Simulated scan of single mutants.
Amino acid sequence: MKLVSWNVDSLNAALTSASPRAQLSRHVFATLSELAPDVLAIQETKLSVKGPTKKHLEVLDGYFPGYKVAWVSSDEPARKGYAGTMFLYRPELEPVVTYPRLDAPTTMDFEGRMITLEFEDCYITQVYTPNASEGLRRLEDRQVWDRLYADYLATLDASKPVLATGDFNVAHTEIDLANPKSNRRSPGFTDEEREGFTHLLSRGFTDTFRHLHGDVTGAYTWWAQRSKTSKINNTGWRIDYWLVSDRVADKVTKSETVDSGPRQDHTPILLEIEL
């Protein structure tokens, strides 16, 4: 099974804009099309509450012919056109699709952050984890989210193996970002967020990239757009993950990034597993 996850940072812009950045995004979609994944998880779609338009679906079908689509968008009382997630999956697959809510703080449950696909032999679930935000104003709520999310995955895992992916908005260890010392209290690298991720793994899950590649450094999934040289200089962060239930970790044959060329922000991540 071949699976890909990508934080697209606005699906509408990627699919319909004429900007240079949108052209780079479409080049990434072309690359993913060539990979022909069984399942593609997309975060930060930023779509309206009505979801993808006819135009969006036509363009996606050009890259992934016949794939089925499951989506959820941010809705009131949350901010509209914010967050949002989507799955595309091969037409022959027939998962049960759910849109979990965690009883999380503030509007987090209404921001379109999670979708789960249930198959006969596993769950595939994606998340766009809330950012602690500027000034760490959302850090306490983020800590609650992390505990609830770990409980959710553990509940799934009690039934069948779990493959969990997405933008987790945390660099787990110092080797997961280029400049750990200067980012010690930055959103995504606080002790609290890192401990939350450690707790998640302790509930029975494996970081597949580290499982296969050990302590390799310089392997990042995100480079800040506001710095024009962040990707050129590889001053990035690894904040996107494929996690799997511990008991199927040895069935993972590949876990790596997908080359997104000069496009900054997130790059897609690939998982291959033999279930």
Rank of each mutant, 00 (worst) to 15 (best):
L271E: 03
V252A: 05
P130E: 08
K254T: 14
P52K: 03
K254C: 14
G66Y: 13
A18S: 15
V96L: 12
T235K: 11
G204C: 06
L47S: 04
A171D: 02
Q143V: 15
E195R: 15
R203P: 03
N234G: 07
S33I: 10
R203D: 01
Q126S: 05
V170D: 01
E195N: 07
E272N: 08
E58Q: 15
N7V: 06
D103M: 08
L3Y: 13
V72Y: 06
Y89K: 00
T98W: 06
D38R: 13
V49I: 15
F197Y: 14
E192V: 09
D250K: 15
R226W: 10
W242C: 00
F119T: 08
S186A: 15
P161I: 06
R137V: 15
S159T: 14
R142L: 07
E193L: 01
P20W: 12
L24N: 12
E58L: 13
S17P: 00
Y123P: 03
L200P: 00
T257H: 08
E120S: 15
R138C: 05
V96T: 11
E44Q: 09
M108D: 04
N12L: 01
A224Y: 01
F29V: 02
V252W: 06
V49W: 08
A249R: 12
N7T: 09
L156E: 07
F87H: 04
V216M: 12
R185F: 11
S33C: 15
V8T: 08
R247D: 14
V216N: 07
T16I: 09
G51H: 07
L212Q: 05
L148P: 01
P180C: 13
V28A: 00
H199R: 13
L177S: 02
E92Q: 13
I269D: 01
G188H: 00
H213G: 07
N131H: 12
D141K: 07
P130W: 02
L136R: 04
E174H: 10
F205H: 02
A13Y: 00
R79N: 14
R184Q: 13
D103Q: 11
A150W: 06
G81D: 12
N12H: 10
I124M: 12
R26A: 01
Q126D: 04
P161S: 11
D151V: 05
T208I: 14
L11N: 00
E256D: 14
D157W: 06
V144S: 08
P180R: 12
S260A: 15
S33A: 15
L200W: 05
D9R: 05
N234H: 13
K254Q: 14
E193R: 02
R142D: 05
I239L: 09
V69K: 01
E192H: 08
G218T: 11
S255I: 09
T107W: 09
K181V: 13
T221F: 05
T229L: 13
L156G: 04
L32E: 03
K46T: 10
F110V: 05
S17N: 10
H56Y: 09
F205A: 01
R90E: 14
I232Y: 10
R203F: 05
P65F: 14
P187Y: 02
L201A: 02
R238D: 00
S227I: 10
K54S: 11
Q126I: 01
L40E: 01
